[in-house]
Design a protein around this nucleic acid. Structure first.
Lengths: 171, 171
DNA sequence: TCCGTTACGTCAGTTTCGTTGACATATTAA
DNA sequence: TTAATATGTCAACGAAACTGACGTAACGGA
């Protein structure tokens, strides 16, 4: 390690610091971001996993179980636990697929829609506030950087104009 | 719900879509971001919690246990489990504080530094790639938006020029 | 029609990582 | 001297992920 003066001279140090800040921004933002919904979820005896399921079903009505799994990247056993609860307690409906009767198409019930709004409204206003303060140009930069960090298959969810989420594996 | 044409006419719809995309960008980015280090951690029989401790000790050498707790926002019992492992296995050193002998000042051992580099190097290169692709202006926008989503106490860690992390509660 | 594959579900056991509550010890500071 | 602080520890619990194995129904091609 070079001496302290490197801090002011070496551009590589600044770059390192910049990257570190990026890591930490992501950590703190995600932590604070999820914290807002967690208290609401606790009142329903639900956790973050329930929120994710509700969110993506809301976003992709009629999504299949396997497509939901590929978004969340968890095992079906993990999903099964929370999805089962949400179905039993009347937040999510399962309908047998029409072309393919093996599929269970998932949609939110009215009760599910209501919870979705309650949960996401805090997060939306958090983002809305940050967007408003930062300005349109900054938002464009934010999107660019975030997109750059995604794996290719996920990035595709955002490039189209159509609602994201289910973009079948075109292999 | 209004009819489909609302999509093209109502600016509020675009705004809603914009916010939703923000939520999802955060979800996907964080998921992919943490995934890279998780495989390495598994080889050491460590988890994400160990990484966070190693990272913030590396970032704030000589940090006290209570300051680390206030960064991570977990209970001391939770921290104790992972911190204990890291100390026992020789990744972290504890030194009794000099002014206040109740404190245990935490630093990484050489072994700890090595693991830190191994773990963080993937994340840094992920961010570096995204920054490079997006350009300096976009990075500035990214930082602005992310800072806007933090709670005030966390935001303070980034406003100064000095290394972030420990910013004592000035009450 | 038969058969392999797919979509989904479930039983059982394990791990990581967070929680609460209670209590102990050493040290500092009023 | 005594209250508060910094840290650690025992115990029990819960959420959310995991692996592995097995079952059922439906699809689809040979």
């Amino acid at each position: 390690m070079a001496d302290i003066s490197t801090r002011k001279v070496n551009p590589l140090f600044l770059r390192e610091e910049e990257l570190r800040q990026g890591i930490e921004l992501l950590f703190y933002a995600y932590r604070d971001f999820t914290a807002v919904a967690d208290q609401i979820l606790a009142q329903y005896n639900f956790g973050r996993a329930h929120h994710r399921v509700i969110y993506f079903v809301s976003r992709n009505p009629g999504i299949t179980v396997s497509d939901l799994l590929s978004i969340l990247k968890i095992t079906k056993q993990s999903l099964s636990r929370v999805l089962g609860q949400l179905v039993r307690e009347g937040f999510i409906d399962q309908k047998t697929g029409v072309q393919d009767r093996r599929q269970r198409l998932l949609t939110l019930t009215d009760k599910g829609e209501a919870l979705e709004r309650e949960l996401t409204e805090n997060q939306r206003s958090l983002i809305a506030g940050a967007y408003r303060e930062a300005g349109a140009e900054a938002v464009e930069g934010f999107r660019k950087v975030m997109l750059g960090m995604l794996e290719e298959p996920d990035r595709a969810r955002f490039t189209d104009d159509s609602p994201p989420g289910v973009r079948r594996h075109v292999s």
